[in-house]
Design a protein around this nucleic acid. Sequence first.
DNA 1: TTTACCATTTACGCTAACGTCAAGTTCAAT
DNA 2: ATTGAACTTGACGTTAGCGTAAATGGTAAA
Lengths: 127, 127
Amino acid sequence: METYTISVLTKKFDVSPRTIRYYEQLGMITPHRTETGQRIYGKKEMTRLVLIFRGKKFGFKLDEIKEMVQLFDQDPSGTKQLERTIRYGEEKVKEVTEKIEELIEMRREMEEMLQQFREKLRNQKEE
Amino acid sequence: METYTISVLTKKFDVSPRTIRYYEQLGMITPHRTETGQRIYGKKEMTRLVLIFRGKKFGFKLDEIKEMVQLFDQDPSGTKQLERTIRYGEEKVKEVTEKIEELIEMRREMEEMLQQFREKLRNQKEE
DNA sequence: TTTACCATTTACGCTAACGTCAAGTTCAAT
DNA sequence: ATTGAACTTGACGTTAGCGTAAATGGTAAA
């Protein structure tokens, strides 16, 4: 079984140890410990961290990310729990879809302006 | 010519006056004033604010947004300036494109997990 | 065993992006 | 003319997300 120390993670994700411990403090990850108290991170923690940093990249707040991570990671068993999870997940998918659409619109507008600048540049060069 | 007071903007964008004034303090908008000192916001400020709030939605920091807004709004005249603006703009478009692609990948993964949960739910209901 | 590094907890510090008074001015309606 | 809402400028307060320093303990190689 693959395990990592905290220093390995700081290199893998290019963040400080403080950052990793802070996420633990918020209850987003729960690494095991050696007898002497050193943190050991397994595969589960790794996948969580990947989700966390991806979430951060898109401007989600840490407590939003915490919700999402817990949701997609705790493997709900009860029927009620399953249904709740699915509903929540569908909403999150919808939110992401909206973000995507707005970003596409944003890009369209940016390209329009760029096009105008390009034409202006052509006109200037002709004279 | 359409103009607005600050209270109209707070309703339009659903933020506090403090927020609007803070953006002015950072030099992101520069509303005109009446003789008594009241701020008046015109069309130009409106479009800037739209850009600002859109940027915020995607997790850009205010000073990043400031750069982008100034860029696409100052209508550069010199040939050198134009070329610089176009290059910068193309880079921003590229960044946005990457964000879009990653978000799409994220959504794909979310839907995969959801699909697994749905199947699990079906299996539970059959028993 | 010493050197050098990696780990731990505790705790105070810092910046961004506002919130929240306070104290005064102006506007709009009665 | 008065009243109340909306505006103004300070200035201090707050929260998230870490940074950083201090004091201490474990570990691996020479």
